[in-house]
């Protein structure tokens, strides 16, 4: 079996709460992260969102942290470059590399810190949504927000068949590896090209079979039966509001604090 975020969302303890509220919390936190002037609010968000995801939504902690490592490693790499690129303020660190002077100054360091904090906070918020809200609920929110039916329908069909094609891709990949399709870079590339080509053809055929299947059940242009999503409990709305106000307050009050 494949380890998919959506599967974790299905088994999350927050699956049955209102998707709108979860989106509001996740997106709100994310926006505050990117608009915050200092790293303090994003760090607060990162910590609290992780606690919510692991503590309340019961996502396995180990899985959560391995998941976070991926964006974190990117953020660390890029902020390292940013730290060296921006001048201004006192010199904090310098190294002479074959006659080139590489130095980190205050502004650069601050910017790098902010970058890491924002990425971290933003990813924690995004993972909160991804790990608690199954795709289907996001569709129902999109529909209630007035997205045209045909777009919702198409996304639902695409979503359904992603899993069929993941299975097929895995089967084809296994068949290739079994016959040493991954021996050497040249072979690997070639195998991947074949896999993509075959998947495209399979998708095409599946599309034709899909039309037959829908026609066989009297398709009349109606597909998007999005179930009404769970309604938010007043207490939950209240909690989310309080959280967002606190984060906004932190972001506002700390906007002039410089860490370095």
């Amino acid at each position: 079996m494949h380890d998919l975020l959506d599967d974790y969302a299905h088994s999350s303890a927050l699956t049955k709460t209102s998707p709108r509220l979860k989106l509001l919390l996740g997106l709100g936190a994310m926006l505050l992260c990117v608009s915050s002037a200092t790293p303090i609010a994003p760090i607060f968000i990162a910590v609290t969102m992780s606690l919510i995801t692991i503590g309340i939504a019961k996502t396995p902690g180990r899985f959560y942290f391995t998941l976070l490592l991926i964006p974190l490693s990117f953020a660390l790499l890029s902020s390292g470059v940013v730290a060296f690129m921006h001048g201004g303020g006192d010199q904090l660190f310098a190294v002479n590399l074959f006659g080139f002077l590489l130095e980190i100054r205050e502004d650069g360091a601050n910017l790098a810190l902010l970058l890491i904090a924002r990425t971290f906070g933003g990813m924690c918020s995004l993972f909160f949504i991804a790990l608690t809200t199954p795709m289907m609920e996001i569709f129902s929110v999109l529909k209630s927000l007035g997205l045209p039916d045909f777009l919702v329908d198409l996304s639902m069909l695409m979503y359904r068949y992603i899993f069929v094609f993941i299975d097929q891709a895995a089967l084809i990949h296994n068949a290739q590896v079994m016959r040493l399709g991954d021996a050497g870079i040249k072979n690997t590339l070639k195998s991947h090209a074949i896999l993509s080509g075959v998947l495209f053809l399979r998708a095409w055929e599946q599309g034709e079979r899909l039309i037959v299947a829908m026609d066989a059940r009297c398709y009349d242009g109606r597909l998007s039966l999005v179930e009404p999503a769970a309604r938010a409990k007043p207490r939950a709305i209240f909690a989310v509001m309080i959280y967002i106000i606190i984060v906004s307050a932190i972001a506002f009050l700390t906007k002039d604090i410089r860490l370095l």
């Binding site: 795709m135 289907m136 569709f139 639902m156 069909l157 979503y159 359904r160 068949y161 069929v164 599946q206 079979r209 899909l210 037959v212 299947a213 829908m214 059940r217 009297c218 398709y219 009349d220 242009g221 109606r222 597909l223 039966l225 179930e227």
Partner: peptide
């Protein structure tokens, strides 16, 4: 997998009745 195209069981079983109006 050719037949079940909706993303949840409920939606798939409901497909026929919904399209019958």
């Amino acid at each position: 997998d050719d037949q079940i195209f909706a993303p949840t069981v409920y939606q798939d079983v409901a497909f026929g009745p919904v399209n019958l109006g």
